[in-house]
Nucleic acid binder design. Structure first.
Lengths: 232, 232
DNA sequence: GTGTCGTCAAGAGCAGTGCTCTCGATTGCC
DNA sequence: GGCAATCGAGAGCACTGCTCTTGACGACAC
């Protein structure tokens, strides 16, 4: 029956998962550069060549870890968003920000794999883009719903975006339907501001400078929300 | 005489410099993970063990490259700032932003070494902090001079920073004398926003999303300047 | 000028890595 | 029961960072 073949595939899936789990643990300790296929194999009681039955190369293992990471972060973001009342747009944004920061601070090496220098090859493969969009999709929904509820009031202190970026805005609008180019531009800036702040903290740029990081982060994200036009 | 000993030290300094030059070229091509002491030694016509007379370990070579990188970026920022009239504060800020972006886009792997995941050890050593402050010093000067010239008018749409960050603001004030906690908070946010934007672009987060990157960058940095309070 | 000492490059060698290939053994399907 | 696909083990290759020893060269004191 199919059951038998399914049994084989099941143990394969289980071993694949065990490999990524161990690899993720090693990654958390040693960083991407220190992740060794042989060490993972040793811990599994396998010989190193056996790993290649499951991942054709070390880079593919890292890519799998990247995809898992994006999904884990995306899930954390989704859960954080879900804990806040739907019409508290600023609260939802702040919850998302905190989720990203806490996820990153708890696993700096994994975060570095996602948003630091991409280790495998120069550009991460296409496969990582879709799961990477999971978190930003939540953010887009928050902004879009705020727009739809007419609760978004961007302060009129910024210039209009140049027409050149209109095609890009069109692409982003699939995530934030109903938003003007100006709102889209502010949203992208807020999103990069979030990750800029988290990266600076995780990668040590705040050493000897910002010590009260949670408080400053909270304030900075509140300011980003205001500039975006989310209610105070 | 000392001349002879100086001659010896001079050839040593020259070889040290040649090593870092070759290493920097390899870094630009293969990234930090692919930098090999043996490959550098081969290109120099030396045997690999000879390199250890100049750098006690691969991590020390990388640290030297980090320091050189911070200095190069800092110099690029200083030069960019110097090309703009002293009282055109917004122009100086934009010049600094463009310098950072162009430097990063031209050498993504080197930029990743500075602002992506720190490769050697978990935290870059103390030695890298001082040269790393060179760029931010320029930025601090721009803001401080704008404050002194009473040309800084931060739009009153943001909440005041919480008292908890006052001690941190005190530290940053050494870079931006005369600035209020609010201005300092905005300045830090603008600075992290700059690097968040550059990192997103260099690390490929804008793939399939933002294509007109120079134009969007220009606009976003103009907006950050406005939020900071620099004149329109 | 001679001898001594510090500096240096070369070479061999060790432990570790990613990856390939071959070879039995086991498993699943007809 | 036999066939074919799958899988783990093992050996091996080329490469890495790093250590240690050896021998040569240059700088200094005498």
């Amino acid at each position: 029956m199919n059951a038998s073949r399914t049994a084989r595939e099941r143990v394969r899936a289980e071993l694949t998962r065990e490999i990524t789990d161990i690899a993720r643990r090693h990654l958390a300790v040693d960083g991407a550069a220190g992740l060794s296929l042989r060490a993972v194999a040793r811990e599994m009681g396998m010989v190193s060549s056996a790993i290649y039955r499951y991942f054709p190369s070390r880079d593919d293992l890292l890519t799998a870890l990247i995809i898992d990471g994006y999904n884990a972060l995306g899930e954390a973001v989704e859960k954080a968003d879900a804990t806040v009342p739907r019409d508290d747009f600023t609260g939802r944004w702040l919850a998302v920000c905190r989720a990203v920061r806490e996820w990153a601070v708890a696993r700096p090496h994994e975060y570095a794999l996602l948003y630091g220098s991409p280790v495998p090859g120069y550009r991460a493969p296409e496969d990582t883009i879709a799961p990477g969009a999971r978190g930003v999709a939540v953010f887009g929904r928050i902004v879009a719903e705020a727009v739809a509820a007419e609760r978004l009031a961007p302060p009129a202190v910024l210039p209009e975006p140049p027409p050149a970026i209109a095609p890009d805005a069109e692409v982003v609008r699939t995530l934030i339907p109903g938003a003007s180019d100006d709102v889209i531009s502010r949203a992208v800036t807020a999103w990069t501001g979030l990750f800029g702040m988290v990266s600076f903290e995780v990668f040590g740029q705040f050493t000897n400078t910002i010590d009260h990081r949670a408080e400053f982060f909270e304030h900075a994200m509140t300011c980003l929300a205001r500039v975006l036009g989310l209610p105070a």
